[in-house]
């Protein structure tokens, strides 16, 4: 079975480490915050100027001056700090964020990512995504493996305008955990109950399959 959004977030959360500063993108990446392993401390960075993002507020705690990058009302965690946008992107561009998790429309075998624009259809902008992929060394892309119509999102060459070039090394989809190196996708893990044949069928770019492909632990 393909992973649910929650299971996907759960699998990504296994990549967290104690003491990590983490930037989570909008959508599935946001859910990762719900699965931080017990006893582990991570600090969430919100690129609109908050390090140490807390949970959503109660009705009483709502503060219009305190939002996350998705413009949702949030709270501050203990030990949080606030700063301006230039400082925020100095953290991001300067490589100070330990892990970045973001969504995408397409990823290709050369580590290119397209996530911000579908010409003629969706032109809302890249927000902070281009800075995030350019600045981070440790990036995880989360997305569904293929579209609803069964069109692969793991390609030989991205077809949409790029968000970043040659910057993606890890992709976790609802079907598989894939690493990108030397111009190929490498299958590392598969979702529980998902066959290697299914993954091959829905991966358009060249996929290297090792002898042993364990199931994800979710």
């Amino acid at each position: 079975m393909a992973l649910t959004r929650e299971q996907l977030a759960q699998r990504v959360a296994q990549e967290l480490q104690d003491g990590y500063y983490v930037n989570l993108g909008i959508g599935i990446p946001t859910l990762v915050a719900n699965y931080v392993p017990e006893g582990m401390e991570v600090m969430l960075q919100s690129e609109n100027g908050l390090l140490g993002m807390g949970q959503f507020p109660t009705e009483d705690e709502i503060d219009a001056d305190l939002i996350n990058a998705g413009k949702q009302t949030v709270t501050m965690a203990t030990g949080a700090s606030l700063f301006d946008s230039a400082t925020s992107f100095a953290m991001i561009r300067g490589g100070h964020v330990d892990l970045t998790v973001l969504g995408a429309f397409e990823v290709d075998v050369n580590g290119n990512i397209a996530s911000y624009m579908i010409p003629g259809k969706l032109i809302k902008g890249m927000g902070g995504a281009m800075d995030l992929v350019a600045g981070a060394d440790n990036i995880i892309v989360t997305m569904t493996h293929a579209s609803k119509h069964g069109v692969s999102k793991l390609l030989s060459n991205c077809t949409l305008p790029l968000t970043g070039k040659g910057c993606i090394k890890k992709v976790i989809t609802d079907l598989a955990y894939i690493e990108i190196k030397e111009g190929k996708f490498h299958l590392i893990e598969r979702a529980p109950g998902v066959s290697i044949e299914e993954i091959i069928a829905l991966t358009a770019g060249e996929l290297v399959i090792p002898d042993n492909v364990p199931e994800m632990n979710v």
């Binding site: 925020s88 992107f89 624009m117 902008g125 281009m130």
Partner: peptide, 21 residues
């Protein structure tokens, strides 16, 4: 934007902040 009445220059957020700085 779609009709071309408004010119939109999409700029990465960190670049925009740094351009102002």
């Amino acid at each position: 934007m779609m009709s071309g009445e408004l010119e939109v220059q999409l700029t990465p957020q960190g670049t925009l902040a740094e351009q102002m700085r």
